[in-house]
Simulated assay, not measured.
Amino acid sequence: MDFHEFWKLVLEEAAAAPGNAERRIVTFHDPRQYAGALSQWKSLKSRRPGLRRVKVSPLIRAFFVPAAGAVKLVQRYSEAVAVEEDLRIQIHSHTQSPAANKNSHSLPWGVRAIRAPQAWSRSTGVHIKIGVIDTGADFLHPDLKSSLASGVNLLHRGMLPIDDNGHGTHIAGTLAAAGGMRGMMGVAPRSLIYPVKAFDHTGSAFVSDIVLAIDWCVQNRIDLINMSFGMKSRSNALHDVVVKAYRAGIPIIASSGNDGKRGGDYPARYSEAIAVGAIDRKRRVASFSNHGSYIDVYGPGENVTSCWPKEGYKEMSGTSMATSHVTGAAALLLALRPGITPRELKLALRRTSSPLLLRKGQRRATLGGGAVDAMRLLRARARRPTGAGSAPRMPG
């Protein structure tokens, strides 16, 4: 393969692309050809400014290139590479409103509902590193100061992943806030959040940003990944990187989406992920939550109060909020059982979940798993199941 010619063609495609509006993910099938293309790119980019816009994921052997259609790339190198559109992906927020009295939120209802406080005598999630792929975090929030590591800003390398949206701060608060009696407490208050800023101020990202975020988490040996976002379309590149994290032993916990339908968004629908739906205060599937047999577990997701930028608090609803409760419970278990695999964690979450209350016309079998219960999860300590029960989705 002529790598110089390959990059010449990429530059031609980039010149035809309207700004940053069009991007393509180019994945090499052969590791040796990827290595050759990577070496050539490194030697060329200092002389060809257009190549500096290219980003790289070593984990899935991919380049993310500005390109209008990449028709010539597909035609000339179809046997060597796979080319797909770099799709947009959105955070899963539903509704939000201010929460004025912060002193009343030391234990939000969701943290109590999953029985996290009762579990703290056994585990507080100490030393568990949680990658939160989101909009960043508020590093000045008093409830999060002791819970945040520096993380990474994939949109502006070299800068802290400061939250300019609020969603990431809200997720971090439910996960690991440690404000004591003066602020709020999250599910796993002694775990450590690594904010991975992949989403902009509007809550939007490209699939390539998510691939780079998971790549960073794998390279930095993160223990657990929270992904409160999704999209309707499948992406081979996104699935590939989720599989890579799974094989590296890093569980990915993902929100199913807020369409109120049977079915759901990707990446939650990939069998290697742990798919989360939302429940309300009555332990029923929330009206906005997606549902179905692929859902592994449900978490509190309606009117959840958590941290907000500028030392604030906000009430939000969505499967995003449910996912942070489940990830927090998983962190409690991982602190007791550091070697647990993603498959074992999924089994444990499903096996120890509590039954849901059904709405009129609902059948339990169509909903998937039950409600997350931190105490039951820790008591089980991820023992392998011996009795009957609904089997979770497992990768083939």
Rank of each mutant, 00 (worst) to 15 (best):
S39L: 15
Y34W: 13
M231W: 06
L238G: 06
S146F: 05
G369I: 00
A14G: 05
P142W: 12
R182S: 08
G292K: 11
S235N: 05
V71A: 15
D240R: 14
L192V: 13
W109M: 01
A331T: 10
G368N: 05
L367C: 08
S121E: 07
S147M: 05
F6V: 10
A365T: 13
G173K: 02
V207K: 04
M394S: 04
R376H: 07
T327L: 12
I171L: 09
H29L: 13
S354M: 14
I171W: 09
Y298H: 04
Q118W: 03
R363M: 09
S191K: 10
S293G: 07
D2F: 08
V71N: 12
H170W: 12
S235Y: 02
R364N: 04
R381P: 00
G389Q: 01
S233D: 14
W308C: 01
R88C: 05
V187Q: 08
G136L: 08
T323V: 03
H127A: 15
L238P: 05
N103V: 09
F229W: 14
H167A: 10
G131E: 09
V218Q: 10
E13P: 04
G312C: 03
V187N: 01
L59F: 12
K42H: 14
R52K: 15
D215I: 06
P117T: 10
D223N: 12
D30Y: 05
V196W: 10
A100R: 15
S123E: 10
V81P: 00
R190A: 07
R53N: 14
I253F: 04
S57F: 07
S324Y: 01
D138V: 07
L107A: 11
I253G: 02
P355Q: 07
G277W: 04
N101Y: 12
D30V: 08
R32F: 11
